[in-house]
Computed example of a mutant assay.
Amino acid sequence: MTRRSGVFVTLDGPSGVGKSTTLAELDRLLRNDGRTVHSTTEPSTSALGEFTRKSADSLSGRALACLVAANRYEHIDRDLRPLLGTGFTVVCDRYLASSLVLQQLDGVPEQFLLDLNADILLPDLAVILTAEPVAIGARLAERGKRHRFHDDPRAPPVRSSSIPRPHRP
């Protein structure tokens, strides 16, 4: 196991719960406390991350889960480990918890997701934000739908094509 001198914090929760707002405030507070901070997001801002973000409406299930995991491993190798190794406090908007929830609701089995993410970098602190569905719905309505996972503020919809159908003779 590689030692790191930085601190890794993740923020997860449903779309519209206030992750981005919380991240910005946490970044400000940590900087005011004299810490060197890097704020990031998943999917990342790399070419693979942007492709993943743009593909979330057209891909689903295991294909999207594999793409998200590939971007996560790239993000870890390219950004997270190097920054943490030099003492940064890294705060990430969405990480493993979001993937586990969204992708299971997209029809991907939990064990498949756990296997895909078995070798990721775990956060020092994982924060899960919650809010009343009515508040989340109002926030989503105000800013507008950005992708299919915003259809229901309580949980993303499962596409009918990804729901296993029982075999009927």
Score class of each variant (00 low, 15 high):
residue 122 L to K: 11
residue 137 G to L: 05
residue 46 S to C: 09
residue 61 G to N: 02
residue 100 L to F: 06
residue 140 L to W: 04
residue 31 R to M: 14
residue 151 D to Q: 15
residue 11 L to Q: 01
residue 129 L to K: 01
residue 111 Q to N: 10
residue 87 G to S: 00
residue 37 V to M: 13
residue 4 R to I: 14
residue 49 G to D: 06
residue 79 D to E: 15
residue 62 R to L: 14
residue 91 V to F: 01
residue 94 R to V: 15
residue 63 A to E: 11
residue 114 L to N: 00
residue 86 T to K: 08
residue 27 D to S: 13
residue 6 G to S: 02
residue 49 G to S: 05
residue 117 N to P: 00
residue 161 S to I: 11
residue 72 R to T: 02
residue 122 L to V: 08
residue 150 H to T: 05
residue 29 L to M: 11
residue 45 T to K: 15
residue 126 A to G: 05
residue 146 R to H: 06
residue 56 A to Y: 01
residue 143 R to F: 04
residue 18 G to Y: 04
residue 107 G to H: 00
residue 26 L to N: 05
residue 165 R to Q: 11
residue 133 P to W: 10
residue 30 L to V: 09
residue 3 R to C: 11
residue 44 S to G: 08
residue 89 T to L: 03
residue 58 S to C: 14
residue 4 R to W: 09
residue 111 Q to D: 14
residue 150 H to R: 04
residue 83 L to V: 04
residue 157 P to T: 10
residue 56 A to I: 08
residue 143 R to E: 01
residue 7 V to P: 02
residue 8 F to V: 06
residue 143 R to A: 04
residue 22 T to V: 13
residue 117 N to I: 00
residue 113 L to G: 04
residue 66 C to H: 06
residue 108 V to G: 00
residue 37 V to A: 13
residue 145 K to H: 08
residue 133 P to F: 06
residue 74 E to A: 12
residue 100 L to C: 02
residue 88 F to R: 10
residue 90 V to A: 01
residue 164 P to H: 06
residue 117 N to F: 03
residue 131 A to G: 07
residue 120 I to R: 08
residue 84 L to K: 00
residue 78 R to T: 13
residue 94 R to C: 12
residue 86 T to R: 15
residue 51 F to D: 04
residue 108 V to I: 03
residue 80 L to I: 14
residue 21 T to W: 08
residue 36 T to M: 13
residue 34 G to D: 03
residue 85 G to F: 02
residue 60 S to R: 04
residue 154 R to L: 15
residue 37 V to T: 05
residue 155 A to Q: 14
residue 104 Q to Y: 07
residue 126 A to Q: 06
residue 100 L to S: 01
residue 111 Q to Y: 08
residue 58 S to D: 12
residue 90 V to M: 02
residue 2 T to V: 11
residue 136 I to L: 03
residue 166 P to L: 09
residue 24 A to E: 14
residue 158 V to H: 13
residue 39 S to K: 11
residue 152 D to H: 13
residue 125 L to A: 13
residue 97 A to R: 06
residue 145 K to E: 14
residue 58 S to K: 14
residue 32 N to G: 15
residue 96 L to K: 08
residue 12 D to C: 12
residue 121 L to I: 06
residue 59 L to W: 08
residue 150 H to F: 08
residue 15 S to F: 09
residue 46 S to G: 12
residue 69 A to F: 07
residue 33 D to T: 11
residue 45 T to I: 15
residue 12 D to M: 10
residue 75 H to I: 03
residue 116 L to M: 03
residue 103 Q to R: 03
residue 105 L to N: 10
residue 74 E to D: 07
residue 33 D to Y: 11
